[in-house]
Amino acid sequence: MNVQVIDGANGFVGSHLIGALLARGDEVIALARASVEVVRRRVADALRCLGFDESPVDRLRVRRLALDEPDLGLPVAEVFAEPCTYWHTAALVTFFPRREVELLNVNVAGSANALATYERHARPGSRYVYIGTAYQCGLDTGGPVPEDWPASDSPDRFRNFYEYSKREAEIALARSRSVGEGTVLTARLGVVVGHSCTGRALTDYGLYDFLRVMAFFARRNPGERVRLPCHPDANLHLTPIDTTVSRLLSIAAADLDRPIFHVVNGQTVPVRDLFEVLNAWLPIELIPATPEQIEDVPFNRFEAVVNMRAKYTATYFRHRYDFAWRDLAAPPAVTAEVLDRLISWYVREGLPE
């Protein structure tokens, strides 16, 4: 069995992927900026979250990663001693402004350095798996978005610079020698959330950033009513971490003739349904509103403040997204029951005091 090399090892997806690989008996080398202790703790938490015993973490080899150094600062003779599957999960995820240079350095230049290091040192029989985002489609939502390599577009055609940086990284990857040789897979993720059976989530990104903002205002102003701008058919491609990891493992073992996969569910979650569940668990009433409705009745002061605080994540409510996807080890849809479990766990266990 090939060695599994995973960068971004202390991230949400990376740590759970490592946990699943260790649990099935694979040899794993974890690469991260964080210390060995931090990585092992994150992976142990991920193993527990996935329902596994945490003892396999003792077998984990952890090596320091530096995306801006030659050969990533790695002991390449050790890391690439055998054929491997190299998983590039490391990324900077932020929707906030004034982080453009950092996003380019990590998500574009850092990804190019990871690929170049792999191409220089990986043994024959290796493959490279790039973890991207389905939302690299930007504002082009005349979908379904195809599983094809993207074309260049200007930054103003994206909801945030994070999306643009992930698009640029894919464009660079498409031009690589490894793509020409057929040894690359690109897995574009949806909105990754907690475990489908328990609701447990070891992250504060994405949906959970929005939940945290809503809970902050709900606790301080219980009973308030808030409208948020939404597309009439706004939807979310929520993918629980357990089914996301299972799908990634299936994709990594697939044929390489079609190298791009959207790791999403065929059935999406309407934003209206999300608001209903949130309204049931928090003392606040969230209401989807069209831009025309808001223009007719402008925000009151409280609504304006909430929308300002939530604007970086709530922008995803203003569009409908459809992605081409293949029924390859298809994960189950996020049902109403699963959605309630995800929200209720975070309200009870994940929110700051």
Rank of each mutant, 00 (worst) to 15 (best):
V108C: 00
G19H: 02
A30D: 07
T198L: 02
H16D: 09
N300L: 05
E82C: 09
A324M: 09
A252N: 04
P150R: 01
N105G: 15
E82R: 15
F323P: 00
N307I: 01
H88K: 00
R42I: 03
G19F: 01
W281A: 14
Y118W: 12
E170W: 13
A114F: 01
A254K: 13
K311P: 08
L74N: 05
T183V: 13
V36N: 15
H237T: 10
E349V: 00
V184T: 10
R219E: 08
P259I: 06
I171F: 05
V106P: 01
A114R: 02
A330I: 03
V264K: 08
N105T: 12
T244P: 00
S152K: 14
H231S: 03
R64C: 08
G180I: 08
S154D: 15
D204L: 11
F216E: 12
L139T: 10
L185R: 14
V101E: 14
A330E: 11
A201H: 07
P229H: 01
L31E: 10
V57D: 03
N307V: 04
E170Y: 12
A329S: 14
R24Y: 00
Y164L: 07
P332G: 02
I260E: 02
G194V: 03
V306C: 04
D26Q: 14
A187R: 09
F158D: 10
F317N: 02
G125P: 05
P283G: 04
R42S: 15
E168K: 12
Y86H: 07
R220G: 04
K311M: 14
F158M: 06
V101N: 11
E276A: 10
V226W: 06
Y128G: 03
P291V: 08
H121C: 04
V13W: 00
A114W: 03
